[in-house]
Design a protein around this nucleic acid. Structure first.
Length: 190
DNA sequence: GATTGGATCGCCT
DNA sequence: GGCGATCCAATCG
């Protein structure tokens, strides 16, 4: 399966199936990245927690573009968050990448993070964007270039996947749209 | 034009 | 477990 097929699905389906895929950045030359171990789905019209819920704005425009578009936003005055648009164009759904298991360019990521504890390198949405060099410069771009998504080397089994509620939101807090790999040391929070 | 609060993290206690 | 950092974008007047 390629990322187009993965991401043209509903955000909830894509978020779950994205576990095990590898996310690679080539920003500033040397590749950095790892295995996706935690995701959250954000839908458009029926999800009050989604940035696209209240319609199109200059910030949220990438969410309304075709599947595989990168949506980056800045929050808490210091953190970048990265999402990939899913579903049909205009549905404005996306998957937030919340944690990676580091595999590629670990030294480079440690340098960007200013620390070398492997477990803390990319175990959170703000941490991983910093480790991979992602900023608002990447919002609106398409996968397959500087940022890329590669199929799993070994797909996780159904029993390895934990389904739970999303973190840090108020409206829509009961929806079971967060997914992570059971027992994985790089998940942001159990 | 000003205000307000956010899909967080790391350090301090 | 609590809080400060730090700034953008949405909302309101």
């Amino acid at each position: 399966m390629d990322w187009v097929t993965l991401l043209e699905q509903d955000a909830v389906v894509a978020a779950k199936q994205m576990l095990g895929w590898r996310f690679i950045s080539r920003i500033d030359g040397s590749p950095t990245g790892g295995i996706i171990v935690e995701t959250e789905a954000y839908r458009g019209r029926d999800d009050p927690a989604a940035h696209s819920y209240r319609g199109i704005t200059p910030r949220t425009r990438p969410m309304f573009m075709r599947a595989g578009t990168v949506y980056v936003y800045f929050t808490y005055g210091m953190h970048h968050m990265i999402n990939f648009t899913t579903g049909a164009e205009g549905e404005a759904e996306a998957v937030l990448i919340r944690a990676l298991e580091p595999t590629e360019g670990i030294e480079c990521m440690a340098r960007r993070r200013g620390m070398d504890n492997l477990r803390q390198l990319t175990s959170g949405p703000g941490k991983l964007t910093r480790a991979l060099g992602i900023t608002l410069a990447q919002t609106g771009t398409t996968l397959g270039g500087e940022l890329d998504l590669l199929p799993p080397l070994a797909a996780p089994s159904e029993t390895d996947i934990v389904t739970t509620t999303r973190i840090g939101i108020s409206e829509g807090r009961d929806l079971p749209w967060r997914f992570y790999l059971r027992e994985n040391q790089f998940v942001s929070k159990r």
